[in-house]
Write a protein that binds this DNA or RNA. Structure first.
Lengths: 329, 329
DNA sequence: GAGCCGTGAGATAACGTTGTCTCACTTCGG
DNA sequence: CCGAAGTGAGACAACGTTATCTCACGGCTC
C-alpha cells in the first residue's frame, strides 16, 4: 500500500480511502490511485484491515459431523447461502463424531475470531464454550442441543416424528417391529428411540416384542443386523430405521433376500423416491435447519439480543420408493 | 495479552513466549502466566499473530459448484481431511455455476490471504488469477481444467470413461443410443459427449442415429427428456446419462413408464447399488480427486517447486442397480 | 577475581491497515 | 475584503501480536 501511495504520489491514507470507496476523494486522485493499484497488482490485506478496524472478520464457522453425508452437506449448503448473503465466508469442519476433535476445532475457530459458530455437537459437554459466549460470541446449535449451555438451537421434532412413523406401522397391524438406530451416544438417536418406544407402549405391545437392535453405523452394519433378524425363527414384520444410512443398508439387505417387509425410516432425501422398495419416511425441511440457524446467528452477530431461542421443526410422513407395479423386471 | 502480562507480573513478550511454547521460559513463570490466562479467559488472537509473524494463515479455500451435490461434498470431505492433517482450516464456497460469483469469491479469498486455493472452475477464463499466482499463491484445479492458466489440475479421464460406457452398449448390439448431458458450457460434459461420439463413430453408427439430447440440468429435466424420447415413434434402445443427477431423473422416468431400456451413466455413488433398474456406471475414485488435489496444494504451500502437474484419474465400469430377480413386488 | 559466555526476560519496533486529529485550501456571506 | 464554514488530504497512532535487539545475571575458565 505504501508502494501504491508512492507511485500515485499520494499518502497511504488516501489509498486506503480509495480502496474503501470513501466518497470524499477527488476523482483525479482516485484515478491515479486505481491506476497505481492496477500496475502493482495490489490487493488489500483483509487480515490487517480487520485487525485495525476491529470490525468483524466476516467469517463464520460451521462444525458438523461429516461433510460427505447428504444431510450435513445440505445444511452446509443452506448455511453458505445465508452467509454469502451477508458477505461472510464460511469455514466448514467435520468433527467426525469425535469429542476431542470438536473442541479442538471450535477453539481454533475462536482464536481466528470468527463472527459466530454453528455447531452440530458431538461431545456431551460444550461448557468449554461458556467463556467465549460470555465474551459475546454468538453460537447456534443445529440438529442436536448443546450440553451445559443455554444458547440458541434449531432441532427437529425427532420424538414426534419417530412416534408417528411407528404408529403408522402399528395402525397397519404390525406388532413385531424392529427398531434400528445408530449409537445412543447421539441425541437424535435417543430421541427417535424414545418416540418409537412411546408408540409401542401406547399400543400396548408386550415388552418382549420391542426389538431394539443396536447400533449400526454404516449401511453395511444395518444390512448385517437385518440379516441376523431375518435368520431368526420369528422375524419382525416391520422395520423402523433411525436414519438414512441405516435405511439404505436395511433396504439393500431386504431386497437382496426378497423380503417384502414393511419399512419405515427417518430422513427423506432426493434419492428416496428411487428406493427399490416401498418406504414410509419421516421427512423434514433439511435446508431450513441450516437456513434458520444461519439467520438466527446473523441476527445475533448484528447485535440483536433476545433470550435463547429453541426452534423445533415439524416432521411429515411420506411414502417413498418405487411402488411394485412400476418396477422393472 | 497486556492484562495477562500485568496479572502475572511479567512482560507481554513473556506471555507471547508461553503461548507459543518457547522452551526457554522458566517453569515458575510459565505457571504464573498460564494461571493468569486461565483466570482472564485469554485466547490468543490468531489474526494479529498472523499479521505480525508474516507466516501462513493456515487457511485454504475450496471453491466448488454446489455443496449440496454428493460429488462435490465428497471432494470437500476429502480436502478437509488432508487440510486438517496440516492443521489448516478450510473455507468452502459454492460458485453455483456462476462466472461472476466464482471470481468474486476467489478474489475475496485472496484478500483474506489464504495459503492456497482448490477450485472447480465455472467460468471460461481464470486469467484473473495470474497476478496472484505470479506472487506465489498455490492453486490447484479439480474436475475441470483452468482456462488461460497453466497450473496444477486433477481431472478424471472423462472422454475415455464415456467412450467405454457407450462401447459397452454398442457391444451389446444397441445402435440407437440417446446421449443426455448437462450444459455444454461444462467441460466434463463436453468431454463425455466427445467420448460418446468417438465410440459411435468408431462403430460406424449412422449420424442420424446419434441422438444427443440437450441439456437437462435438474433430474426432472432429464425425466422430461426421457418422456419426450419415448413418446416418439422410434425411441432409443439404450440411454447414456452424462452425470448422476441426469441418471437419477432418467431412471425415475423409465421406471415410471415401465420401460426396460438399457441404461448407462457417468458417476458411481453410494446409492447407485440401490437403483431400481440395472445400470452400468462409469465410476472413479471421487475422494481421490480431493485428496490428490489437496496433497498437491500442500506440497506447493510447503515450498516445493515443480512444473505444473496434470493428473488424469482413470475410470472403471461397474454394474449397479438391483437385478430384476431380486426386486420386491 | 576479571572477563567471557550462555541463559532468560524486557524494551522497542514492526506487520498492513484504518481511526482520529489536524490543517490547508476553497467558498461564501456580510 | 475578512472570517466562518465546509471540504479534501496528510500525519500519527493504534489494532494485538511477534521479531529483534538489548541487557542483567549467574556460572565458568584461566
Amino acid at each position: 500500500m505504501i508502494d501504491v501511495a508512492h507511485l500515485a504520489g499520494v499518502s497511504v491514507k488516501t489509498v486506503s480511502r480509495v480502496v474503501n470507496h470513501t466518497p470524499t476523494v477527488d476523482a483525479a486522485l482516485t484515478e491515479r490511485v486505481l491506476e497505481a493499484i492496477r500496475e502493482l497488482g495490489f490487493r488489500r490485506n483483509d487480515v490487517a484491515a480487520n485487525l485495525r478496524s476491529g470490525r468483524n472478520t466476516s467469517t463464520i464457522g460451521l462444525v458438523i459431523e461429516d461433510l460427505s453425508n447428504t444431510f450435513y452437506s445440505t445444511i452446509a449448503a443452506a448455511v453458505f447461502e445465508v452467509s454469502h448473503r451477508f458477505n461472510t465466508q464460511l469455514i466448514t469442519a467435520s468433527s467426525e463424531e469425535t469429542t476431542s476433535l470438536e473442541e479442538e476445532i471450535v477453539l481454533d475457530l475462536c482464536q481466528r475470531r470468527v463472527d459466530g459458530l454453528i455447531i452440530v455437537p458431538t461431545g456431551n459437554d460444550q461448557s468449554y464454550l461458556q467463556p467465549e459466549i460470555d465474551m459475546g460470541l454468538p453460537v447456534v446449535f443445529v440438529d442436536r442441543p448443546p450440553a451445559g449451555l443455554n444458547v440458541d438451537s434449531v432441532l427437529i421434532d425427532n420424538r414426534k416424528g419417530a412416534r408417528a412413523a411407528v404408529e403408522q406401522l402399528l395402525s397397519e397391524g404390525h406388532r413385531k417391529i424392529a427398531v434400528m438406530v445408530d449409537s445412543l451416544h447421539i441425541y437424535t438417536m435417543r430421541e427417535r428411540l424414545i418416540g418409537a418406544e412411546e408408540a409401542l407402549c401406547a399400543a400396548e405391545v408386550p415388552p418382549e416384542d420391542h426389538i431394539f437392535e443396536a447400533w449400526p453405523h454404516e449401511p453395511s452394519d444395518a444390512a448385517g443386523v437385518v440379516a441376523h433378524l431375518f435368520d431368526s425363527p420369528s422375524p419382525p414384520t416391520a422395520v423402523f430405521c433411525g436414519n438414512n444410512r441405516i435405511l439404505m443398508g436395511a433396504v439393500a439387505e431386504l431386497v437382496r433376500r426378497g423380503e417384502k417387509t414393511r419399512v419405515a425410516g427417518f430422513d427423506d432425501f432426493e434419492f428416496a423416491g428411487l428406493l427399490p422398495h416401498p418406504v414410509t419416511v419421516v421427512g423434514y425441511d433439511t435446508p431450513a435447519l441450516g437456513t434458520l440457524a444461519a439467520e438466527l446467528l446473523f441476527r445475533r452477530i448484528h447485535g440483536e439480543t433476545l433470550p435463547p431461542k429453541h426452534e423445533l421443526l415439524p416432521t411429515y410422513l411420506a411414502e417413498r420408493g418405487i411402488p411394485p407395479a412400476r418396477r422393472y423386471g
